[in-house]
Simulated scan of single mutants.
Amino acid sequence: MTHFPLRHDGVSLDAHALAVGLSVLCAVLALILVVRPAVVVLAAGVVAATVPAVAHAYGGSFSDAALPRAVDLALAPDWLATSAAIAAALLALVALVVRVAAPAPGSRWSPWPPAEPHHAAD
């Protein structure tokens, strides 16, 4: 949410819409992750968090592109917005790796058959 634009600063409507759309996408993905942390949503979270971080890092190289201009409209200062985007991308990546590496609950094979209940002798 640090990338939500509060000011227009004379940029085109396309760049402003891109900044708002990216912020809304990240918020929606975060809400979906709270309800159901699926692999597809985690992968989308990695990509959605990486895009602003890369745009901040390489924005000077592509100053005519819409994305670097869109992330310059961020609510927070550049250093905070970039740090938040990098932290979110790394956190989503770690969650994705853990989710893929860990088996789903209830699908684990038991090494022994379930124990028989003991019955009292008649």
Rank of each mutant, 00 (worst) to 15 (best):
I86T: 14
A66T: 04
A30F: 13
L75A: 10
D78L: 10
S110D: 12
L25Y: 07
V39Q: 08
H16I: 08
H119V: 12
L73Q: 05
S23M: 01
L96C: 07
A115G: 00
A27T: 10
V46W: 03
V71L: 09
L73K: 05
T2Y: 06
A120K: 13
V98G: 00
S23I: 01
A88E: 09
P114I: 02
V51S: 05
P114R: 10
L96P: 05
G59K: 02
A87F: 12
G59T: 04
A49L: 10
T50R: 04
L25I: 08
A43N: 06
L67T: 05
L29I: 14
L67G: 03
L22C: 04
H3C: 07
H118T: 08
V20R: 00
A19V: 05
A66Q: 08
A43R: 08
A95F: 03
S61R: 13
P113Q: 04
S63D: 05
D64H: 09
V97H: 02
W79C: 04
S110E: 12
L33W: 01
A70L: 11
A85V: 14
R69C: 05
H118E: 13
V54L: 15
L33G: 05
V24S: 10
P37E: 03
A17E: 13
V35Y: 09
G59N: 04
R69Q: 15
S23W: 01
A81G: 08
A43G: 14
P111E: 03
A88Q: 06
D9P: 02
A38E: 06
D14G: 15
S12R: 14
A102P: 00
F4K: 00
L90F: 14
S12F: 10
L31C: 15
L73M: 14
S110M: 09
V40F: 09
A81Q: 01
P113Y: 02
V51G: 04
A95W: 00
D14C: 15
V40M: 05
H16K: 11
S107I: 12
L29K: 02
R7Q: 10
V47Q: 05
A27C: 05
H56K: 12
S61H: 10
S23E: 01
W79S: 11
L22F: 02
F62R: 12
V41N: 03
D122N: 13
P114K: 03
A57E: 13
S83M: 07
S61T: 12
V20G: 00
G59F: 02
A88G: 11
L75N: 02
A101E: 09
A38W: 03
V34H: 13
L18M: 15
R108I: 14
L96Q: 05
F4A: 01
S110Q: 11
G59A: 06
H118W: 12
L93H: 02
A70I: 07
A74G: 06
